[in-house]
């Protein structure tokens, strides 16, 4: 499988809901359609809620991976403005 190279990375470890989503949404909004955002986070609830909300807003969730004991990495492709 082809490796996805993110166009932008944000580290929102330490942020809680809803600011995890607010910060991710601001990043996605500032990107171009088709680009990929990588989100590094450690708020467990957000690992489930960010993908859900991004989908609701019309973006594509490429992957959600738990990368160590505390952190997740989520990849989102911007599908629409």
């Amino acid at each position: 499988m082809e490796e996805i190279i993110p166009d932008k990375r944000i580290d929102i470890r330490g942020l809680k809901c809803p600011y995890t989503f607010v910060r991710s949404k601001l990043s996605i909004e500032s990107m171009n359609t088709g680009e990929v955002l990588e989100i590094l986070l450690n708020y467990p609830e957000a690992a489930a809620s960010i993908p859900r909300s991004m989908q609701d807003h019309g973006q594509r969730v490429l992957s959600v991976d738990k990368v160590n004991d505390t952190d997740w990495i989520i990849l989102i492709r911007k599908e629409r403005d």
């Binding site: 809803p18 600011y19 989503f21 607010v22 910060r23 949404k25 601001l26 609701d56 807003h57």
Partner: peptide
């Protein structure tokens, strides 16, 4: 970002 978060969340 925090002050306007409930606006920003709205599609």
């Amino acid at each position: 970002m925090i002050r306007y978060s409930r606006h920003i969340i709205l599609p």
